[in-house]
Design a protein around this nucleic acid. Structure first.
Lengths: 351, 351
DNA sequence: CTGAAAGCGCTTACAG
DNA sequence: CTGAAAGCGCTTACAG
């Protein structure tokens, strides 16, 4: 039956029932096998250059786009990158997310974000959910995680880069990370204030996450070094950081310790609130008391007086960490596994 | 050969090569077919209640978790929800993202975010990428999209809810949306300022996205209504909104139009910057000039003087939109397809 | 209400 | 360097 109609099944094969253009469509049009198309398109070596070109052309002509779900199922690896950050209400982490996400997208990856609320068991739970998607990579804030989380990160074998923090010492088994030395930054700002002749420098902090505590340690060591450390000048509040809390802390400090001549806040939002409170209370800054912040958040340069602070390279951290992850996902070994991006003291008029 | 060793193939079958616990494992352990497990676990009707319970118990015991990629491939629908927002540098959208994401996660969905930078072709490109993941739902900011984007949203058949805006009139074909009437809010604040005796009220804006323009229209109509509209009192700058720009705009207005007795800024960051500039310039607020903002962003209540503004329910918008989407994804029809969450004038000391 | 079978669209040993 | 075949782990008509 040479003239029999083409069976429906064969006719349908040119497009699947979903109407989507598939690998097989490209293979048929290019006259090669699906396996070859798969290899050619992913730039796998061991494919004839001429074939690669032909397949590429056909693929472009048909407008073929690989199906991420099929790819993930077959390869056991998706094109998702999971990112874990503490909060979305702190501009610091939003900047981190923004820059990392931009870099990852340029590399062909989708970002899956998880907000931990500084809760280690929520972090663990989020990681579990994200690992179900078989992410190709992981970006996590900080180096402190509970044992279960660490185990998950390790046993999943997913490449992982830590953000913001660096391990205390250069160890053999140190994880990949991009950040700066929080302790050094805390000490540097404290020394800066000392160098300006301040003698009674208070440290005021909220949230009290690990990085804040490191800044506190930096402040302590700089004061001890100068021989003027006084434990009662620590004002620590575990509540979330905010302008309002900064104002409250400042008022409290002025009331309890009127002789204080500088306050170093662990984050700019607190310091901005303190600056507003000083205006309200008629406390003159920096004549009576200097005020310093941390992170150089948006608005700090617009305060009255403009805020002295530590500028932290969060956008560059997000980008560099994403780049490092990208190279890890390519199977490469980053030349600098612990990348220190430093910080900068920005002196403005509040000190 | 009754005592022959169990063939390797059968022995292996209890776990796949990946080591993952699969649907088939649960089926075997529960003594039913994979199809039944699939139906029982997804709560599909037409399964014996007793079986559901048994399957559920076995599944829990084995710690089975469905594979999202396999599920997406087979059903042509993932558990992703894509969200499109203009910027991450505006706290407004971060709040929206945060609340939507929280609600969606509680409903079992992963959020895929896309940042459009107020660029309609970038929005289109992002949507294309996201649609590849076959999202179960879509959350998009605003009602204005280019024709290609609208076509994609429509032809993809993916349930979609729009954020922040409401259509001008109640039409039959109106899209699902959750927001408030930007024009009304702009008019309400203007009337509020008029009611306080202000006569020459300027409108200062940045970014100039559609919602800002609606606020401008509201300001215009309220002034026209009062017979005091003057076109030269519009100060529009397409640059991104920021504290610094607010200061610049304010200074410019004071210089060019010293008789102005109130400035209504389209966003709180501009207004905050203006407040700081007023302090710097020695312009007394509200005695000489009233200042009003929009959105009641963080810090506005800490300014000197505290900022009069329009409080917008962005967290509730994100949550309600996610809820509406959740019900659409369940195949339900939302009782209120266009949900108006309103706004509130917050009078503080700057007016 | 339940099951066998096909299929979703890829990747990847395994041969050649 | 290339291809045929199996398999990733589910869902869903189709029968019964």
């Amino acid at each position: 039956m040479p003239n029999a109609p083409i069976p429906a099944k064969t006719a349908l094969k040119s497009h699947r029932s979903t109407g989507r253009i598939t690998l097989s469509d490209v293979a048929r049009a290019a006259g090669v096998s699906p396996s070859t198309v798969s290899r050619a398109l992913r730039g796998e070596r061991a494919v004839d250059p001429a074939l690669i070109e032909r397949v590429q052309a056909v693929s472009d002509k048909l407008g073929y786009v690989p199906d991420p779900a099929a790819r993930a199922l077959a390869s056991q690896r998706s094109n998702h990158v999971a990112i874990l950050i503490p909060l979305l209400s702190n501009a610091l982490f939003v900047d981190l997310l923004d820059s990392a996400q931009k870099t990852l997208r340029a590399g062909g990856y989708q970002t899956l974000m998880g907000v931990t609320h500084y809760d280690s068991s929520e972090e663990e739970q989020l990681l579990r959910e994200q690992l179900l998607h078989r992410p190709a990579g992981l970006l996590v804030t900080g180096l402190d995680h509970n044992p279960a989380t660490r185990k998950l990160m390790h046993s999943s074998q997913v490449p992982c880069v830590h953000l913001m923090d660096l391990p205390a010492a250069q160890r053999e088994d140190a994880p990949y990370c991009v950040g700066f030395r929080q302790t050094d930054a805390g000490a540097a700002m404290t020394r800066h204030l000392l160098a300006q002749g301040r003698k009674r420098i208070a440290f005021a902090a909220a949230q009290l996450d690990p990085r804040v505590m490191q800044r506190l340690f930096g402040w302590r060591s700089a004061l001890q070094e100068a021989g003027v450390y006084e434990p009662t000048l620590e004002f620590l509040n575990p509540a979330p950081s905010s302008l309002a809390l900064g104002g409250i802390l400042f008022e409290q400090i002025m009331q309890q310790r009127p002789a204080v001549d500088a306050v170093f806040f662990c984050n700019d939002d607190l310091a901005q609130g303190a600056l507003m409170a000083a205006l309200r209370l008629g406390v003159s800054v920096p004549a009576q008391v200097a005020i310093a912040g941390f992170n150089d958040l948006t608005g700090s340069d617009q305060m009255l007086p403009p805020l002295t602070t530590v500028r932290t390279p969060r956008a560059r951290i997000g980008e560099a960490a994403a780049q490092m992850l990208l190279s890890l996902m390519r199977g490469e070994t980053p030349p600098v596994p612990q990348l220190d991006l430093g910080f900068e003291i920005v002196q403005r008029q509040s000190s």
